[in-house]
Nucleic acid binder design. Sequence first.
DNA 1: ATTTAGTTTAACCAAACGGTTAAAATTAAA
DNA 2: TTTAATTTTAACCGTTTGGTTAAACTAAAT
Lengths: 208, 208
Amino acid sequence: MIKFELMTNYSSDTEGKILEAAKKVFIEKGLEGTRMQEIANEAKINKALLHYYYRTKEKLFNAVFQFAITRFIPHIEGIFNSDKNFFEILEAIIEQYITLISKNPFIPIFVLHEINRHPDRLADIIKSAGIQPKILIEKIEKEVEKGTIRPVSALNLIVNIISLCVFPFAARPLIQRLLFDNDKHAYTTFIQSRKTEVTSFIINAIKI
Amino acid sequence: MIKFELMTNYSSDTEGKILEAAKKVFIEKGLEGTRMQEIANEAKINKALLHYYYRTKEKLFNAVFQFAITRFIPHIEGIFNSDKNFFEILEAIIEQYITLISKNPFIPIFVLHEINRHPDRLADIIKSAGIQPKILIEKIEKEVEKGTIRPVSALNLIVNIISLCVFPFAARPLIQRLLFDNDKHAYTTFIQSRKTEVTSFIINAIKI
DNA sequence: ATTTAGTTTAACCAAACGGTTAAAATTAAA
DNA sequence: TTTAATTTTAACCGTTTGGTTAAACTAAAT
């Protein structure tokens, strides 16, 4: 809830408890699959208290969605501002990406579904997340010119990287059941192995 | 609606109209985002008529979901039973896959979201779709033994193929907006180009 | 001790929802 | 033309849903 900074606040961390409960339920069930009562139960508070802190379901959802975006888009500026060569940059991006999603494995399907339902939400995302595909595009094109890598289309390569990192999370139940006989541990081990597997797969695909 | 085969049927194709309307709405909005009234409007019939043909929302949804599965999983038996070599098989699978999803581009996010909500639905899927990953796994492992391709993990390769084919559809609004300035035509052209791009990407990644 | 502001609750509300019912309309057969 | 079966409709119903209200409670400031 928006407050003046000097305003007294003698509640326990109810607002935080609500947001945590909302994250859990919304990310699992989506906007339309979520009941305000369930969030209240999860936070162990009265339902009216939800509306006291976040006036509407939509406002509470927006808070969760904005959080989800930060766990969906990796920040790769730091990687670019290092003395890594292109292959090392790729390796770092992929490892960071899979690590990020591993910490919140239900985020991809949640974000993709909600964007699909209301593509207009993208406007906020682009502002708040400050995504810059240009940097990566130009880097790839420069490497192609230099002859370090095959003449691949930059956009295709970017989409390939994201696909290989994100899709296995969005398709978790399918993959776990069909390829790992519903063995949860086998699936998570597989995901972790992909940090190196995906990296070498991509590098083999583009190196001369 | 289930009927005895000899039973007279003097309606126009109301049942078909309902199913088509249900496909459109359910696949766009998901089970929980769909209102029975909206399906009735789409089919230009009375809402009670929905319940006359498909007794409950869930039964109607199941009909749509089962259809969606057939448009999500490609049938690759024919490709295997040809005299193609491994790379030609890969090429055929990828082209068939992207072509299949192109015809129903909203199916992936719909299916993935609904499976995520209710993983138990997978039981029906596996039965009705008769998926056989073993065939592909054994084929890949045999090629590795023969030395035709690098020693890649079969499961990783399979997940990579599916990821590269399916993810760009699930992430359409993101990709179209971020990489193609919301140009619909540029996006669809890009998708079509991937039939060959993904094929050569994968072949480069695994060939010796 | 009283006032003031912020917090929490129980009870309530109107709208929307999936689903039902009984009657009317249509169709094909007798 | 009557009959029987199927199809379609309008009106209705109980429940669930997001949201409100007014009162009770708590804690700090005067």
